[in-house]
Design a binder for these strands. Structure first.
Length: 423
RNA sequence: GGAGAAAUGGCAGAGUGGUCGAAUGCGGCAGUCUUGAAAACUGUUGAGGGUCACACCUCCGGGGGUUCGAAUCCCUCUUUCUCCGCCA
């Protein structure tokens, strides 16, 4: 959620930046400013009414004490009137605040200066590329066929037990998953992140805190009986650790990491692009989350990017980094870098990590602040990124490491898997 | 799931209708003393909004109500604790 004072003081800039997302925000931003103006005016009126009412009540108390009940009763009539006025004002204030809030919930974060204007993935900028694309042997297979051939992932079985998009990992496939999780977590804790195990369901307040609710309700599985949501990413429980928290400046930066399964409804997805592990309802992911001082958050973003680069380099997977255009940058993000690994057998790039700086957008909703050097509470910056999303890394490994004799295991993973080939 | 108790400032813990944003203790901060530290003593110390600064408003788990006036009374929700049941 954008901050109203910022909008008020930077109206033109906000509109201009939102245009990078191809949004004409003129009307919305004008409304925000007007609503806020009205809201504050009502607030002032209400405050004054309450102040008068309070002082009269005190007076009444004193009059009763000194036995002047008659005078007191006279004043009572006045306070009764004031009460009616303040009731109406309170209602007006609530309506106005609610309208303002609803409006603010609809406005996405303003993209950073460097974000290119654009609509779709076609407008994303490739900013880095590394790793050689292997030349595969004759008859190389896409990962879903490899999965079948070596009996390591069973899509039909998952379909039977739960439905499409819930694969079952078996044998060396399951072990490879576990190895990846352990390896990622070790890399992250090695880089200073604290490991967490988080709830896989969250309440409504958490969904609102990180921006999934109220707008993107349909993307999460909702357990209506208990009004809980299955997490679409560890970002939700992880970032909500800091909801309603005031940190000391000296506690910054905070870095946490956690492995969780992620659940996504992916309503409306279908076709060849969702084959195999490409798009699932349940998948595993290791996430990194940072809380940063506003002056350090972009440095931190760069740090996260090189951290993930390092992992992909160790895995020896060909990958590239994209700077997302405005239209492709997620609702809450100001700047997002996507990592994509090349799926050789499918001949396409697969997104495996998305690293974003949300600046104060989430912090404003979360009320995540720190005491700055002046002793004032200031909104912190939040960032997060995947390190990494498992299925597509797995797809990348299966496809890029396949040989005629089987699928080789990247060197760094062998201590975790306990085997060096899937055959 | 059943029965009971509770929820107050960073923590502990008073407060059962008006002068309570809240005693007291601990902790924190500043100072005195000290070569320095500790101890002792003195002062200070919740949050949000609002203002140039004051004033002023809001907040005693959340929401609603009674009353001129609520931390205090009523309703409701949530959470925690104890006992019983169940259970990985």
């Amino acid at each position: 959620m954008l901050q109203v004072p910022f909008i008020r003081e930077n109206k033109a800039l906000v509109i201009e930046r939102l245009a990078k997302r191809n949004i004409d925000a003129n009307q919305m931003i004008t409304d925000v400013i007007v609503f806020d103006e009205e809201r504050r005016q009502i607030q002032t009126e209400l405050d004054n009414t309450l102040a008068e009412s309070n002082s009269l009540s005190k007076e009444i108390g004193n009059l009763y004490k000194s036995g002047e009940a008659q005078k007191a009763n006279l004043l009572k009539e006045k306070t009764t009137q004031l009460k009616q006025v303040s009731k109406e004002l309170t209602e007006a204030l609530n309506n106005k605040s609610e309208a303002l809030k609803e409006l603010l919930y609809k406005i996405p974060n303003i993209p950073n200066e460097v974000v290119p204007r654009g609509n779709s993935e076609l407008d994303n900028e490739e900013i880095f590329k590394e790793g050689d694309i292997p030349v595969l042997h004759e008859g190389a297979l896409p990962h879903w066929e490899l999965a079948k051939k070596y009996d390591i992932i069973d899509f039909e079985l998952g379909n039977k037990i739960a439905g499409a998009g819930f694969p079952v990992y078996k044998g060396k496939g399951a072990r490879l998953q576990r190895a990846l999780i352990a390896y990622f977590l070790d890399k992250n804790t090695g880089a200073g992140y604290t490991e967490y195990q988080l709830p896989h369901m969250v309440n409504e307040a958490s969904g609102i805190g990180t921006g999934q609710l109220p707008d993107k309700e349909g993307q999460m599985y909702h357990i209506t009986e208990d009004n809980l949501y299955l997490i679409p990413t560890a970002e939700v429980p992880g970032t909500n650790i800091f909801r309603d928290v005031v940190l000391n400046e000296s506690e910054l930066p905070v870095g946490i990491t956690g492995y969780t399964p992620c659940f996504r409804r992916e309503a409306g997805s279908y076709g060849a692009h969702v084959r195999g592990l490409n798009r699932l309802h349940q998948f595993d992911k290791v996430e990194i989350i940072r809380v940063e001082h506003p002056s350090k958050s972009y440095e931190a973003l760069d740090g996260m990017v090189s951290h993930v680069k390092d992992i992909l380099k160790e895995l020896k997977l060909p990958y590239r980094i994209l700077r997302l255009c405005g239209g492709d940058t997620s609702f809450a993000s100001a700047l997002t870098y996507d990592f994509e690994v090349f799926s050789t057998a499918q001949d396409r790039w697969l997104e495996i990590s998305s690293i974003s700086n949300f600046e104060t957008f989430q912090a404003n909703r979360l009320k995540l602040r720190f005491k700055n050097s002046e002793g004032k509470n200031e909104l912190a910056h939040t960032l997060n990124g995947s390190s990494l999303a498992l299925p597509r890394v797995l797809a990348g490994i299966l496809e890029n490491y396949q040989t005629e004799n089987g699928i080789e295991i990247p060197k760094v993973l062998q201590p975790y898997t306990g085997f060096n080939i899937i055959d």
